[in-house]
Amino acid sequence: MIQYVRQHVSLSSSHYDAALNEARELRMLARNGIFDGPTSGFAPGLAQGNVVILPKEWANDFLVYCQKNPIACPLLAVSAPGETSIASLGENIDIRSDVPEYCVFRHGELVEHTSDIKNIGWDDMVAFVLGCSFSFEEALLRAGLSLRNVESQSNVSMYQTNLPTVPSRCFSGNMVVSMRPFRPAEAIRAIQITSRFPKSHGAPIHFGNPEDIGIKDIHAPDFGDQVVIKEGEIPVFWACGVTPQLSIANAKPPIAITHSPGKMLITDLTNEQLSVM
Rank of each mutant, 00 (worst) to 15 (best):
6 R>I: 00
7 Q>R: 13
8 H>G: 07
19 A>L: 07
22 E>L: 10
33 G>R: 05
34 I>W: 07
36 D>W: 00
38 P>A: 10
41 G>S: 06
44 P>T: 08
49 G>Y: 02
53 I>C: 09
58 W>V: 02
59 A>N: 14
60 N>V: 01
63 L>M: 10
65 Y>L: 00
72 A>L: 07
75 L>G: 09
76 L>G: 02
77 A>R: 00
78 V>I: 15
79 S>T: 15
86 I>T: 02
91 E>A: 12
95 I>S: 02
101 E>G: 00
104 V>G: 01
106 R>P: 03
109 E>Y: 09
115 S>C: 12
115 S>P: 08
117 I>T: 04
120 I>G: 07
121 G>F: 09
121 G>E: 14
129 V>L: 08
136 F>Y: 15
142 R>G: 12
154 S>I: 02
168 S>I: 00
169 R>C: 06
174 N>Y: 10
175 M>S: 04
179 M>N: 12
183 R>I: 13
192 Q>T: 10
197 F>I: 09
200 S>M: 12
206 H>A: 06
207 F>A: 13
208 G>H: 10
209 N>P: 04
219 H>E: 14
220 A>F: 03
225 D>Q: 04
228 V>P: 03
230 K>E: 14
237 F>R: 01
248 I>R: 00
251 A>K: 00
251 A>G: 10
261 P>M: 13
263 K>D: 01
